[in-house]
Amino acid sequence: MCSHGKISSMFQSKPRQYLRSSQTTAFRAVLALLSAALLLSGCSNKKSSDIILATTTSTYDTGLLDELIPAFTEKYGYKVKPIAVGTGEALTMGESGEADVLLVHAPAAEKAFMAAGHGVSRKRVMYNWFLLVGPDRDFADARAADNIAGAFQGISENKATFISRGDDSGTHKRELALWKASKKTPEKPWHQEAGQGMGATLRIADEKQGYTLTDEATFRAQQKSLSLRAFDFAGQDLKNNYSVIVVTKNPGSKAFSRFLVSRRGQSLIRKFRSPEYKKALFTPDAE
């Protein structure tokens, strides 16, 4: 009788007790984890000499930054974290202080950025050209056009497939400006937005046999694996200017900007060659 009562009371009381103490176990585990995370964060906090560079994809995908950054780090000792994004996103990162320095190519947006007081300094670094590229069969007869506006008009009138970056990048901004200048409105379904970087957009244009606006560097670096041909109009409206913008007071960002426009930085840019293309991809033009 007595032992029976003991067992039943054990069955009644144990589960609740179990619950309570397992809750504390879980709680302790979470506590231990949080303190571990804090410790870890303490470890990585000391790297204040790191600078975050928000950059357009073209400088990254062509391999130019792989030349410039190690040379900069060796000379000045600052570690650079390059984040490859479109110019639109890079400017937003600069505005909220997520990046220390920007390497971008959308002069109009950059001027607005500086006018709004988001940047400390802005310097010209280099340029290349935008190219219209398209299928070899040239459905819109772009090769007969006198200038880029004429070619855009031809694409619109023929409703030829045009693949747009559609990602608020510098190239996308320029494309929209060119549509405006050609007095044509891009329309679905022939005007399609990829929402991706230049390399991926070129690939889509290639597969769909469409036209697209590209920076010269990315196109030349990938030309071998593409069947697209370039229509080079080389007018001032196609000049692609890259600038460096210092955003934060971090001394590393100022040093990086100075380095890009220095004789050493400019000569590295002039000598840079992509393994796939043996000619210069960027022309330095710092003042």
Binding site: A37, I83, S96, G97, E98
Partner: peptide, 17 residues
């Protein structure tokens, strides 16, 4: 983890942690 975010002072963004 953004600098302007609540845990920004940890300086963890763009790290393996």
């Amino acid at each position: 983890l953004w600098r302007s975010g609540p845990l920004g002072s940890w300086g963890l963004l763009y790290t393996p942690t």
